[in-house]
Simulated assay, not measured.
Amino acid sequence: MSLNSNYVKKLKEIIECKKKKKYFIVHHNADVDAVAAAYALYKISPDPKIIWAPLGISRLARDLISKLEDPVNVIEGDISLQEDAFYFIIDTNSIEQIGNFPFTETLDRLVIIDHHSENPLFKSALLYIHEDRTSTCEIVYEILRYLGVTINKKIAYALISGIVTDTARFKYAKNSTIKTVCELLDYLEDVELKDIIRTLEEPSLKFDRSKRIALIKAFQRMSYEDLGKVLIVKSFVGAFEGDAAALMVSTIADIAIVGAQKDEEARVSVRVKQWLVEKGINASEICRKVASEFDGGGGGHPAAAGINAIGDVEAIVNAVVDEFRRTIKDLKI
Rank of each mutant, 00 (worst) to 15 (best):
A283Q: 08
I89M: 06
I196Q: 10
H28K: 13
P120S: 09
I143F: 08
K279P: 07
D312G: 03
N100D: 15
K22W: 01
K123N: 15
A30I: 01
K332A: 12
S66N: 14
I65V: 15
T106N: 13
T199L: 14
E69S: 08
I98C: 09
G297F: 08
I65D: 08
D208Q: 09
F170T: 08
Y187D: 04
T327L: 14
V111L: 12
G148W: 15
E138W: 09
E83D: 14
F101K: 02
I65S: 06
V277Q: 10
I113G: 03
Y141R: 06
S284H: 02
S223T: 13
K67W: 15
K18P: 00
R145E: 14
S235R: 07
E264K: 15
D243G: 01
V74A: 06
G77T: 09
G299N: 00
G242D: 01
K10S: 09
A38T: 01
S2R: 13
I328W: 05
A303P: 01
S250Y: 05
K18F: 01
E96H: 11
K49T: 11
K10N: 09
D312I: 04
L121G: 05
Y128P: 02
A245E: 07
A315V: 07
T150C: 09
A218T: 07
V258M: 08
D195F: 01
D226T: 00
E76I: 03
K279Y: 05
C137F: 12
S94V: 04
D295A: 06
L205S: 10
E69G: 02
F207A: 15
I307K: 10
T167G: 01
I151K: 03
Y187N: 08
I310M: 11
H301R: 12
E314P: 00
H115W: 11
E183F: 05
A168K: 12
T92W: 06
I139T: 15
Y172W: 09
V181I: 00
V321W: 09
G56A: 07
C287S: 06
G162K: 08
I255E: 07
S5T: 06
T136P: 02
A37E: 11
E192I: 05
E192R: 15
D91H: 05
V317Y: 03
D295G: 04
D108S: 08
F86M: 01
D295R: 10
K262R: 15
Y87I: 00
A260E: 13
S5P: 00
A256T: 08
I89N: 03
I281N: 11
F294P: 13
L64M: 10
I155C: 12
E76P: 06
K273G: 11
A173M: 03
A283S: 14
A291F: 07
C287G: 01
N119G: 04
R212L: 14
R62G: 09
T180G: 11
L205R: 14
F103Y: 15
K153S: 11
G280K: 03
Y172P: 07
P302M: 03
W275G: 06
A125V: 00
K154F: 02
I310T: 12
D190S: 14
A246T: 09
F101G: 04
K21Y: 03
G298H: 12
L185E: 00
E189N: 14
K211D: 05
L247F: 00
I213W: 05
F86N: 03
D195G: 01
F122E: 02
S176T: 13
E13C: 14
I252N: 04
A253G: 12
I255C: 02
E264P: 05
Y157V: 06
T136N: 12
N29S: 07
